[in-house]
Design a protein around this nucleic acid. Structure first.
Lengths: 184, 184
DNA sequence: AGGTGCATGTAACAGGTTACATGATTAA
DNA sequence: TTAATCATGTAACCTGTTACATGCACCT
């Protein structure tokens, strides 16, 4: 029986965020999910259906330690990283492979195919803008103080998120003006 | 036996791009995949493993017509939209539900958790920039004339893609300068 | 007494990737 | 002749979402 060397490339998407959140100080599946939903959600989502099984797998693999810490009579399982878990997390954070970028953007797809439909390009662009305006609102709602964007890890990504959503909104506005001008 | 009214919300991700590509003038599974890879790939990818089964499902559902059109002795199945297929495509293009936006961005996730590792934030930001510079190159390589960005559907999305990747690169550069200044 | 939030989980399903297999054609 | 490209497809696997089920605790 060989103990295989675990590398960060074996981590699933949910695994990565779970490991990170444990180091971040979130200790139960519930806490992890809640915090993901108000932090990384916009660029890295996760669901209970993945988080809980992943925590169990990590326990079996010795990457986390779990103990039961009920609050009152309510069951509650608390997790923390083992040294192996910490090692795996750092090795992932330090790996230099090209980081994954995956996008699914329905508005852009519709715009791409707009000639096959009857809706004007202008409408597709407006719909794209609305989507990103919603994103901006959501980002600002969670952390209103983000406007100052200090350089701690969490705030840096927030500032990046604000910037690039704003960039798309600006592009839409400019394009809308141009398209409206051509029609009017 | 009731013929159910098909709505665009029943379309899978791959279904949407397949339908659109058929209207766009791509008629075989192979052509669709090739063209996706040099057009929508950056915001909507698809694989053979989904495209071929989807084409068969569409045939069964009467959304496309298929006929065998071998080129020489090499097998080749050509597909085209039926009226039902066209209707479904337009109804999707005209649907006003908030269009899906999904992002998986590993660089941002690493930056978010950077305090748990030993790598400097500066390195994470540089890695993010490298990723988006690659995207820019890929976009320009396929359509060098995109710099002029006319307003046809395909070029509009290309222009948007260029803009927002450029925006992230700029943010990275500014942030790198700031982080380097704090360290030096 | 009832609603909201805390907390844990599973089953069914959907969606998608990867690797593999096959074979013809064409250009070097 | 060999590599690349055209062309089609499947099986195994992985990943992930949704909906459901359960029950405690706290506040009003």
């Amino acid at each position: 029986m060989t103990v295989e060397h675990r590398t960060s490339s074996e981590l699933s998407a949910t695994g990565k965020v779970v490991l990170g959140m444990l180091a971040f100080g979130k200790h139960t599946g519930y806490e992890i999910k809640q915090f993901v939903d108000k932090s990384t959600r916009h660029f890295w989502a996760a669901s209970y259906g993945q988080i809980y099984p992943e925590l169990r797998r990590f326990t079996v693999q010795g990457l986390v330690r779990s103990r039961s810490e009920p609050s009152g009579r309510r069951a509650r399982t608390v997790f923390e990283l083992t040294e192996d878990g910490e090692r795996l997390l750092t090795s992932w954070l330090e790996s230099t492979e090209a980081p994954l970028i995956e996008l699914r953007h329905e508005g852009m797809l519709k715009l791409f195919f707009s000639d096959a439909g009857t809706a004007a390009k202008l409408d597709h662009v407006r719909a794209i803008r609305a989507g990103h305006e919603r994103k901006l609102e959501a980002l600002l709602a969670v952390e209103p103080q983000a406007r100052q964007a200090p350089d701690s890890g969490p705030y840096l990504t927030l500032s990046l998120g604000l910037r690039f959503n704003q960039c798309i909104v600006d592009w839409c506005l400019a394009t809308e003006r141009r398209l409206a001008g051509e029609e009017g």
